[in-house]
Structure formats: structure tokens, C-alpha cells
Design a binder for these strands. Sequence first.
RNA 1: GCUCCUUUCGUCUAGCGGUCCAGGACGUCGCCCUCUCACGGCGAAAACACGGGUUCGAGUCCCGUAGGGAGCGCCA
Length: 480
Amino acid sequence: MMTEPTSPIVTRFAPSPTGYLHIGGARTALFNWLYARGRGGKMLLRIEDTDRARSTPEAIDAIFDGLKWLGLHWDDEPIFQFQRAVRHREIAEALLAVGRAYRCYASQEELQEMRETARKEGRPPRYDGRWRDRDPSEAPADRSPVIRLKAPQEGETVIEDLVQGRVTWQNKDLDDLVLLRSDGTPTYMLSVVVDDHDMGVTHIIRGDDHLTNGARQAQIYEALGWPIPKMAHIPLIHGPDGAKLSKRHGALGVEAYRAMGYLPEAMRNYLVRLGWSHGDQEIFSTEELISLFDLNRVGRSAARFDFAKLENLNGLYIRNSSDEYLVDALEKFLPELPDGADLAPRFSVLRARVLAIMPGLKERAKTLIELFDGTRFLFAERPLQLEEKAKTILSDQARAILGRAIPMLEATEWKSVPLDAAVRQLAEQESVKLAAVAQPLRAALTGKSTSTGIFDVLIALGKDESLARLRDQAGKTVAA
RNA sequence: GCUCCUUUCGUCUAGCGGUCCAGGACGUCGCCCUCUCACGGCGAAAACACGGGUUCGAGUCCCGUAGGGAGCGCCA
């Protein structure tokens, strides 16, 4: 079969390192990654660090770490935009040379005035092009100019967006943007165009806050005679109240989600469904996502971030993970816990017990924090600190039952079936429901009112430790 | 203010002119399972923003209105 020779897909993720990798950025990276991976292409990483004052090495590390944690591996070496400033300047000069750009000497005061006037007259605040056709001899000697693009003043600029569809701007509404600042450094608008071109980017997938930039960048491509990459502007993520995502809701760095005990694969599944769908399907393996993801299935309206759904999905991923995987995940997760450093040495010692309790535990936990909390009784020192509810359960009567349970359990083989039979038999002898025996056992064994199945607890703790904990709490009275 | 985008259950969404008195998922509520808490099972309530068109027929196409969002820098 003949196949059309297609140029390989190249996408890019281009964050500016001025803070953490926030959740919206993570989703943008995910979409870029999926789109490229599903088509045998590459996803490149470009750090847009041209804002020297706000860019920090910590933020760069946060981006690298966040992407790695999510498993979104980029191709080739990351590009640092600032290092390419010379190239950007060359392009601006080239545009100047061919008359597609010009020097503008307008002062900040003049620009300010223009904006105010325009606003007053109900027009968009725009540069009025006063240096566009002025003779260079009129240039003031004491002022260094910026270089502006000589943008078309009539007609329209159109973007055929893969998500938004055809979007049109009247050129009269777009002004002559600055390409090169008066200090000779390139602006973002110029840098992005030159870098995307030089990196061979074929598909620009980014937040729709860049949609207007897309139009202005299209004008730069036009002036340069370069082909315009395909663009896809994906809707933004909003907070639960519909307003722009802020720190208050979910605009945390991805490291914050890691600390909250979310699994990266659950995170990815949640994020991809924010704006993208494949019929009614909710759960996707990574392989499925790579093969199914497409831009034409991305919606055009903003989605609200919903922790409840993320948590549910995370619980589902935990339940479907193997016990070994979860024990490893917990061990790696320890540093995120306040007392993690103290627990780490004991964790490796008690690892087998953690593994033993895992099948029952993973049905109950929605986050790694909850999962770990479920194992804490294994680490507890005798005599146990009892939670309030556990104290309530351990009434005198309950303690008396425990007292009678001890000799019985001592004589029982420490396996699930015999233990089950023994406890049930005791309940029968006491003429109480199973709960009236199980709950006191649970309270004495774990210090809590809830846990995994009581027989699992007995087995994970082992015979000696279990009986010791029961003796700690049992009532002395045997005769009533 | 101007430009652009957007509007289906509380939330994420399915729906690409008739098969929709609108489907799934999360959340909520009820019942079942049950040693607790979960898991699981069953069931319920819950939406096409509004107004005009086009059409035999509109959630689906067009135009307004209203709401929401983004952008309008010598920031990125």
C-alpha cells in the first residue's frame, strides 16, 4: 500500500521557569506528549527563560522533576531560549533590512498617551504606527529605538486552529508589535516564532490564553516567509468556582499533588479527561491514551478542577495496582510525610508485614497518605495509644471479652480460617454478635475503630505481637 | 472599553438534524453485602442559559441577548 510521505510530528512544551510546574502546564505537556507519541513524533522541551529577573534555577528543576514524575519524557536536550538571543536579534535585523520591520522611537510617555486616547475613543489600546513610515533622519539622537514589525493594516489574519476551528482577526485591530527591545533583547513574540521554526516544530499545542498571540505570531511567520506550524489552543483549567485557577484551588505545582499522595498515572488519567474524551470511556491505560488521543476530540470550553473525581480515580488506580508496586510506592513516599524520616528504618524491617496487609488496605485508600495511615498500626509501640472511638469500644465488658479471647487465640493456629472460626465461636459462647468481639479486638490491636478485616490484622501483626497487644487491654476479670 | 473564545445534570463529559420524554463517570441520597471503614452490587434525584430564525423536524445549523473566560506591555 502506498503511504503519503509525511514529515514527522514535532511538538513542544515551552514553560517559563518563573514558578512551579502548575497543573494547567502539566496538562499542556501531557497533550503535547500524547500527540507526539501517538504519531511517532517527538516532544521537545524549551525553557522560556528570557525574563531574567523572574527565571530561577529552582523553577527549572521543578519543571524537570514534575515532568519526570508524570512520566512525560521529552526528546533531545532542552532548549534554553535565552541562549538563542543572538539568533533572534539576527532575524529582527533581517526583517528590518527587507523593510518588514522598522525602528520606532516613541517614548514610554507617548505610548501611555496613545493607550489612554484609544481607550477613551472606544478603540483597543494600540500603538498608532507613528514611526512606521517616518524618515530615519527624524530619529532623536538621545533615544535608542525598538524594532517593530510592519504588520499588515488591512485584510485579516486567520488561524486554522486544530481545536478552536477557524479564528479570524481584522488586521486593523492588531498593531505593530515590538520584536526587539531598545536594549537589543528579543521579545517573547519574536523568540517563540524563531525557536519554533528552528526546532522544526510542526504542532503548537498550548493554552488558549495564547490564542491572540497566535495571530500576532502568524504575522511574523508571514513576514519571514516561513510556513506556519499547525496550532491547537486548548481551553484553560478553572478552579471549582469557575474562576481562573489560583493557588486557592488547584494551581499547585505538581509536586504538591505528589505530596498529597496521588499516583502519577491517576493524575494523567484525570488530566486527560479534562477537555478530552473518547465516548463514555473514563479509564485509560497509557498505551490506550497514546493510540487514542487526538486534538479533534478536545473540547473548546474551560473545565473546572474537581478534587473529588481525582481522588476517586486515584483510589481506583491504587486498587488496581499490585501489592509490591504499592509497597514500593509507599517507601518512596515516606519523605513526603512529617515523620517519614523516623519511619524509614522501621519500614524496611516491617516490609513483609506491610505487604501482608496490603490486599485489604488498598481497597480502602484513596491516596498514598491514607494507604500509609492504614499501615501505621504495624509501626505502633506498645502499649498502644488509643483513639477516642477505640476507647469507647473498649468498655469493661469488651475488655472482659478480650480476656476470655486470649486463651482461646493462644490455642489457635495462626491462619485465617482457624482464626475466623475461633472468633466466631467465641461470639457464640458470649451470646453476642460477631461485631461485639471483632470491634474490641480491632480497638486493642490497632488503637482505632476502623481497619482492614480483623483476621488480616491478626495475621499481619503475628501471634506474639497480637496477643501482647490484647493483654495490654484485656480486663483481668474472668469470673463475673 | 475593545478583540477573540465559550455555555448539556453540582462537576467532567457523550451527543457530530430524526434512533434523546438526552447516555456515562464523579459527587449526593436510598437499599443490599458486611466484624468496622472501605470495596462491590442495585436504585433514585439531577442538565440541553435565554430569545429569535433555518428545517417536515434542532441539544445538534444561523443570528442576537445574557453569563463565563482569555488577551489587549519594550512580561512570558
